[in-house]
Amino acid sequence: MHQGRIVFSQLLDFLPKKSFRTCVNRYGGNYRIRSLTCYEQFLCMAFAQLTYREILRDTVLCLRAMHNKLHHIGIQNKVAKSTLADANEKRDWRIYCDFAQVLIGQARKLYADDDFGLQLDETVYALDASTIDLCRSVFPWARFRSTKSGIKVHTLLDLRGNIPSFVSITDAKVHDVNILDELFPEPGSIYVMDRAYLDFERLYRLHRGLSFFILRSKSNTQLRRLYSAPVDKSTGVICDQTVRPVRINSANAYPGKLRRIKYYDLETEKRLTFLTNHFELEARTVADLYKCRWQVELFFKWIKQHLRIKKFFGISEPAVKTQIWIAISVYVLVAIMKKRLKLEQSLYTILQVLSITIFEKTLISWAMTGSNYNNKFASGHIQLNLFDS
């Protein structure tokens, strides 16, 4: 029987602590801090994510119940509700933002060779945004509508491993297309987006950065056909055309040529029109790549269901953003552990097991093995009969 370190401590082995200290020092996070350092704050919030705590009071009560084990993970001081609340409200959320980017960089290297269903050498990203609704009277800083507040999480998802390579948190009032101004085009990569990102000036910036894009066309987008390429209509492709924008402003914003592909999806019985600057891919491959964009929708659905980002422990902007960035860090940290330990279980299964074994003294690989729970006396009749004479 394993009598070594607890599961939480083993998980933290995959945490680059030196990089975390660099992020803390960059923003002076521990300046004049007497108790509950930034690292201890991170551990408390990570504990809440891993054990599905919904409110701050529950988190502190559970941590106090495990007070004799907290020193094993690096929490040296007694955790008080007011101290943790103040830390979330006042400390710079950019510490955890920068640290999440460090973890993302490590995870992307581990998942670089994963297959996402299409045999392509290029890196493929899916870009989208999801809104988290907030109460207007409690979160007045998160501007959205006159009756409610909200924040928007913009995510660029690497389809190899479903690792977010870029995340930006803004007011829900910010339009999706504005996030293209923050992206640095990666030469040779393919960006898959929905029609909300159709802006010719911003798309041409991606094109000049030697990147490719695939997105749906809007119904009112005016394009002039230059010529058509032959297509195999049995694959669902209706036409494959080379086009230019018709309107003067659009033509000036995007002076190059575009490729327009019309496709009929038998599953949804919808007719879709795609625009891309990639002229080498097969027309059906372009349609298949757009279908892969659904992975970012599933990512948003997954993190909203399994991470604590719908109810917040604080009401200030730093508190909300700190909680979201730590939640993303926990997601990526578990993904790193899964890859390095070569675990076959899904992230959902791993998180479920971690939630009940986090302070157990057992190897993580054992905890994830189904045979670990089998009764060693399974053979033979072992049930006692209360009515035997």
Rank of each mutant, 00 (worst) to 15 (best):
S9C: 03
Q10Y: 01
L11S: 07
D13H: 11
L15N: 10
R21E: 13
N25A: 11
Y27F: 07
Y27G: 01
Y31R: 05
R32T: 13
R34C: 00
R34K: 06
S35N: 06
Q41P: 02
F42Q: 03
M45V: 04
A46Q: 02
F47R: 13
Q49E: 03
L50E: 11
Y52T: 08
R53S: 06
I55S: 15
I55M: 14
R57K: 14
L61M: 15
L63V: 04
L63S: 02
H67I: 12
K69E: 01
Q76V: 07
Q76W: 12
N77Q: 06
D86P: 01
E89F: 05
E89V: 08
K90R: 09
R94H: 00
G105S: 05
D114P: 13
D114V: 10
D115W: 10
L120S: 14
D121P: 04
D121Q: 05
E122L: 05
T123W: 06
T123V: 11
I132Q: 00
D133Q: 13
R136G: 06
F144C: 06
F144I: 02
S146K: 11
G150N: 00
I151T: 00
K152R: 04
H154P: 01
I163K: 06
P164S: 02
F166C: 14
S168D: 02
I169K: 01
I169R: 07
D171G: 05
K173Y: 01
H175K: 08
V177W: 02
N178G: 02
N178Q: 09
D181N: 08
E182P: 11
E182W: 01
L183G: 03
E186C: 08
G188V: 00
G188L: 00
G188A: 01
I190H: 02
Y191V: 09
V192N: 03
Y197A: 04
D199F: 01
F200N: 00
R202K: 10
R202D: 03
H207S: 07
R216T: 07
R224E: 11
S228N: 13
A229L: 14
D232P: 03
K233M: 12
G236M: 00
C239M: 13
Q241E: 15
Q241I: 06
Q241F: 01
P245T: 01
R247M: 03
I248A: 09
N252Q: 08
A253N: 03
A253K: 00
P255Q: 01
K257F: 04
K257N: 12
L258M: 03
R260F: 15
I261E: 12
K262E: 11
E267N: 02
E269S: 06
H278F: 02
L281W: 00
A283M: 05
A283D: 07
K291D: 10
C292Y: 09
Q295L: 15
V296Q: 15
K301F: 12
W302P: 10
L307N: 15
R308N: 12
K311Y: 14
F313S: 10
A319K: 10
T322H: 07
Q323Y: 12
I324Q: 13
W325A: 10
S329K: 08
M337D: 03
K338S: 12
K339R: 14
L341G: 10
L341S: 07
S346D: 09
L351S: 11
I358F: 13
F359Q: 15
A367V: 10
Y373R: 11
Y373T: 05
N374Y: 15
A378S: 09
S379I: 04
G380I: 02
H381I: 08
L384C: 08
D388I: 05
D388C: 12
